[in-house]
């Protein structure tokens, strides 16, 4: 465990908690893509099935459980508890266009053709594109609440830190996982446009809005 990885994990946790807090505090999930949140819940549940087969560390087990529980609670908030505030008219990204190709790719390109390994690979590929419905929603409405942009920034920072973590691990441990690295880079690239807007607008105290 290196410092980039740790801060990356904490940034990821922060993102998840910011989102839960925003929904709970405002009693509203407006501006949040339920589809992205559903995909993240699917990512965690398919990736962390090794909770039942492999023990790595108390930290690892704890974080996995927290991620799964928080993502499921988020989905519950959006689709059940605060359903009336869910902006489904703007959340129109076709999820099957992500899940089906990603599922196919996981079957074709993986480390090992076993159920757990294919599900892990599926979750890695799916995570890399799971934010697309959220970004699509923002591009459709042309704006995002400031708290939502903080959420996205923390999530993007987590991805960027994981890349630094892989560079570190490659040099100092000789470790690399090509599937995770390629998918992670794709995922980080998707945030670049958002990072630019975040730095030029949100950090200057303005609301994140796109030019019409």
């Amino acid at each position: 465990m290196n410092v980039f990885r740790l801060i990356g994990d904490l940034s990821h946790l922060l993102a998840i908690l910011i989102l839960l807090w925003k929904i709970w505090k405002t009693r509203s999930c407006s501006g949040i893509s339920g589809k992205s949140q559903f995909l993240f819940a699917l990512v965690f549940t398919t990736r962390y099935l090794d909770l039942f087969t492999n023990f790595i560390s108390p930290y690892n087990t704890f974080m996995k459980i927290v991620y799964i529980v928080c993502s499921c609670v988020t989905v519950y908030f959006i689709y059940v508890k605060f359903k009336a505030t869910y902006d489904s008219n703007h959340d129109t990204f076709r999820v099957e266009f992500l899940v089906v190709p990603v599922g196919g790719l996981a079957f074709l390109v993986n480390h090992d053709f076993t159920p757990l390994e294919i599900l892990w690979t599926f979750s890695i590929y799916l995570e890399s594109v799971a934010i697309l419905p959220q970004l699509f929603m923002i591009s459709k409405t042309g704006e995002a609440e400031t708290i939502t942009s903080h959420y996205l920034f923390a999530l993007g920072a987590y991805r960027a830190l994981y890349i630094v973590n892989w560079v570190y691990r490659y040099y100092f441990e000789g470790f690399f996982d090509l599937i995770a690295i390629v998918a992670g880079c794709v995922q980080t690239i998707l945030y670049c446009d958002f990072f630019y807007l975040y730095i030029t607008k949100v950090l200057q105290g303005k609301k994140l809005s796109l030019p019409a």
């Binding site: 390994e117 892990w120 995770a180």
Partner: peptide, 10 residues
């Protein structure tokens, strides 16, 4: 022959 390693990353 590639061995599937334990996934310590989240």
């Amino acid at each position: 022959d590639e061995e599937t390693q334990a996934k310590d990353e989240l």
